[in-house]
């Protein structure tokens, strides 16, 4: 399904250009007459990519978030026709301040005002990454991927919603743990998270039984080539700095 393999460029005065590439197929052989391949018209067959490249992009569009999503994540927000199926299936939609489909709508206008609203929304932090939306999206818009990019953009521009501080803290603590130990060291990670958020007493009741059940250790795990992972993080950071002077 999806787009046809080829599109035929049509001239105003050569309207007879057949839009279809296969006609006349002989039975009994899996090869088809070669003449069937070429259209009889003055039209030329173009691949969809080439066809797309004929369109001009507006200069302003190049710097929009929508353009960035397309470039970085191969997510085209123009594909979204606002059916709302993503929102309908989203497990976190009830908690969100802006519905997932509306996040895409905010990006479609390409106006700075709307982009800001998307980047400052709580929704981008409440996305669980369960992939339900993209699994059902009739237009195959990769919304989880868009959310990833929006979150990172929100952090880079320092506009992340303050109500999401604890979520950001959790993610940062988690990554920090990996950077230091190569693997996630839960005790250290949770300690880090609590320090970052001040949620010192949350889940305190669970901790002792966790130890009792052998589910949490006080010492970092061995192995995991922590130096190597540390170097990976360093190289990724350096590369990021290089690309954003």
């Amino acid at each position: 399904m999806g787009q046809p393999d080829t599109v035929t460029q049509m001239h105003d005065t050569a309207p007879d250009a057949p839009r279809v590439r296969c006609f006349a197929v002989k039975k009994g052989t899996n090869r088809r007459p070669i003449g069937a391949y070429f259209s009889q018209s003055e039209g030329r067959t173009l691949t969809p990519e080439k066809y797309m490249s004929c369109h001009h992009e507006s200069p302003s569009a190049r710097h929009s978030l929508a353009a960035r999503l397309k470039e970085v994540g191969e997510v085209d927000v123009a594909d979204c026709y606002q059916c709302g199926k993503c929102t309908a299936g989203c497990p976190a939609a009830e908690e969100m301040d802006v519905a997932p489909s509306q996040i895409l709508r905010l990006l479609q206008t390409e106006s700075p005002k709307h982009e800001k609203r998307a980047l400052e929304s709580m929704s981008i932090w409440l996305c669980i990454g369960c992939e339900t939306c993209v699994t059902r999206c009739p237009q195959e818009v990769d919304l989880p991927r868009a959310m990833d990019i929006l979150r990172q953009e929100s952090l880079a521009r320092n506009v992340a919603n303050r109500a999401a501080d604890d979520i950001v803290a959790f993610h940062k603590a988690f990554l920090h743990s990996i950077e230091r130990s190569g693997r996630v060291f839960e005790f250290g990670m949770i300690g880090d998270y609590k320090l970052r958020t001040g949620h010192l007493f949350q889940d305190l009741g669970a901790a002792p039984s966790m130890f009792l059940k052998g589910k949490m250790s006080l010492l970092p795990h061995g192995g995991g080539s922590k130096r190597e992972v540390g170097r990976m993080f360093a190289r990724a950071r350096a590369a990021k700095k290089e690309s954003q002077p």
């Binding site: 052989t29 899996n30 090869r31 088809r32 007459p33 070669i34 069937a36 391949y37």
Partner: peptide
């Protein structure tokens, strides 16, 4: 089944 006069 001549490749040069047919297409798949």
């Amino acid at each position: 089944d001549y490749a040069m006069s047919t297409f798949k």
